[in-house]
Design a protein around this nucleic acid. Structure first.
Lengths: 146, 146
DNA sequence: TTCCTTGCAAAGGCTTTGCACACCG
DNA sequence: CGGTGTGCAAAGCCTTTGCAAGGAA
């Protein structure tokens, strides 16, 4: 609740125009438990206003990401998800078997990101991370690792 | 040299038909220093046979990946790269600033993958990994982290 | 000869863009 | 009122697919 109000206030402070569409999109994203695709956001927004267009969703999400209010994570295979910054950094664990995505604590990355910085001078962005593999159920189904 | 011969022999052993197109595609991939996109492979193959089609490249790459002879890494933003297995597991470090991709030693992932297995029962596939962030040059250009 | 593979073109899925109208501030 | 934002439709990009002809075994 207050979270999306904060986001909306931030948008206003950034001198960005607040339209009903933007408000509904921000609310949909802020109220969701975790990451969402543009299409999922559209579906929720359309429950309130059927005329809202997918292009507007993409444009608003771009806006949020540009201003650091949301993150965009490309899970690969055409799946791109968004989340408000409040969710904080997390790892997306994407199962190659069933496609399920679970979130993991980003603090697990600390030693990795430090090593990458030291050895490769690469500043890893932990907030946008997707890791591929198999969830417990799918690993038992797949006899040999692919 | 011998590496692509090994790959071709493996394909033959798998009873897969060997066509000039497949041979050229495998050679292009095996001779490359690292990962390549389908389009890059096509470009190289076309220097030898202009008529080769992108669909054939995709079909051959699918074949190689299915049989474990190559890996497909989705770098996000529509960039998908392939590499022969000989390259061994490596991490792709993708710079959000300039788009440059460098490879890092996959052994850095060991403790992370162990932690994910223990805490989330997730079997992480280190061979297909892409990490986002900023390379040294781009980090100095970007004053505040995005 | 028998399937498999190929090239071509069209279709698909997701995302972006051009345009005229609507509307926030 | 001025300048943005929106809906719509079309275009773009990468990848896949249907099909008839070509080619490996």
């Amino acid at each position: 609740m207050s979270h999306c109000h904060t986001l909306i206030a931030t948008l206003r402070a950034l001198r960005l125009r607040m339209t009903p569409q933007r408000e509904m999109i921000v609310e949909a994203l802020a109220h969701s438990g975790s990451h969402m695709t543009a299409e999922e956001i559209l579906e929720i927004v359309r429950r309130r206003a059927r005329s809202v267009n997918i292009a507007t969703v993409y444009r608003t999400l771009d806006l949020l990401v540009e201003h650091g209010l949301a993150t965009r994570t490309d899970l690969g295979e055409g799946r791109v998800v968004y989340a408000t910054v409040r969710h904080g950094p997390h790892i997306h664990l994407v199962c190659r078997g069933c496609g399920h995505v679970q979130e993991a604590d980003a603090s697990l990355l600390r030693s990795l990101t430090e090593a990458l910085r030291e050895r490769y001078h690469f500043s890893c962005d932990a907030g946008h991370l997707a890791l591929y593999g198999l969830c417990e159920a799918c690993e038992q189904k797949e006899p040999t690792s692919n």
